[in-house]
């Protein structure tokens, strides 16, 4: 293992974030805060509680997931796409590193950023809504697994994308809708029966459900299933990356 290379990629990717604090930190925190204000503090007071949790508190785990999902995906996809686009990727490709080090560096950095972002949003939420965390350990674990899994997805998108448009389409047109429909704002038991079934094909449902369980002890689907599903996604993405590097698909001619 070339740990120096992992460290080099990791640090340079983190440095990229600190270069643009407004874009990488302030703007997602601000937009999530708007949700807290509108749906939590303003509308939430007029809403009934769900599963004994006030509406304002109910949406917090989902909103954190929403932000963390999209930020992990777009951050990570940018991280690998930019050097590909500028050509500076030559240095990574000609270095004595394997796919493992490359993924550790890029995905590790993207996941770290999302973790930090998730933490900041969680603290910010305190200003607007009162919430409790029943299982802090599981909360961190779910957050971490989600950050890693969606940074892996972003990495795949960045590897395969051949234009800025494609880079933005996936987070915007797929991840965001899935996150919105994944039970952020409602419990899926509130849906008609048919849509409850359809919803189970949405991977985000499992993430939000498990994450919310760690806060309030209530969930739409069994926590074990949630955990298993996250791990399943993570390993599928890892497998895909392994295949991309093995075949050199869209990376090397």
């Amino acid at each position: 293992m070339n740990w120096y290379a992992v460290k080099a990629i990791y640090l340079s990717e983190l440095a990229r974030t600190w270069r643009t604090p407004l874009q990488s930190i302030a703007s997602p925190v601000l937009s999530t805060s708007l949700y807290f204000i509108v749906f939590g503090a303003a509308i939430g007071s007029a809403m009934v509680s769900i599963d004994g949790v006030s509406y304002g508190a109910f949406i917090i785990p989902g909103l954190i997931m929403l932000t963390v999902l999209t930020e992990s995906t777009s951050n990570s996809s940018f991280g690998i796409y930019m050097p590909k686009w500028s050509g500076s990727i030559y240095e990574v490709l000609s270095a004595p590193v394997s796919a493992v080090e490359i993924v550790l560096g890029y995905v590790g950095a993207a996941a770290t950023k999302s973790m930090v972002l998730g933490g900041i949003i969680l603290l910010t939420a305190r200003f607007f809504v009162d919430y409790s965390i029943l299982h802090p350990f599981w909360m961190l674990l779910f957050l971490l697994l989600t950050c890693i899994t969606f940074s892996l997805l972003g990495f795949i998108i960045g590897l395969l994308a051949d234009g800025f448009e494609k880079l933005q389409v996936v987070p915007l047109m797929i991840v965001t809708p899935l996150a919105f429909l994944g039970g952020t704002f409602y419990s899926i038991s509130m849906l008609p029966e048919f849509w409850q079934k359809v919803t189970l094909f949405n991977p985000v449902v499992y993430l939000v459900s498990g994450f919310r369980w760690s806060f309030y002890g209530v969930s739409d689907v069994n926590v074990g299933v949630s955990l298993a599903m996250i791990l399943l996604f993570m390993f599928s993405f890892l497998l895909m990356i392994w295949w991309i590097f093995k075949t050199g698909y869209k990376v090397k001619v």
């Binding site: 070339n2 120096y4 290379a5 460290k7 080099a8 990629i9 640090l11 340079s12 440095a15 990229r16 270069r19 930019m82 050097p83 500028s86 050509g87 500076s88 030559y90 240095e91 990574v92 270095a95 004595p96 590193v97």
Partner: peptide, 22 residues
């Protein structure tokens, strides 16, 4: 082809690390 937003110093530090040197 070189990453435009980095500083010169960080850029060479990165290169050294990538090739497995402390």
């Amino acid at each position: 082809v070189v990453s435009m937003f980095e500083t010169v110093w960080n850029s060479v530090v990165f290169s050294r690390g990538m090739f497995g040197k402390g």
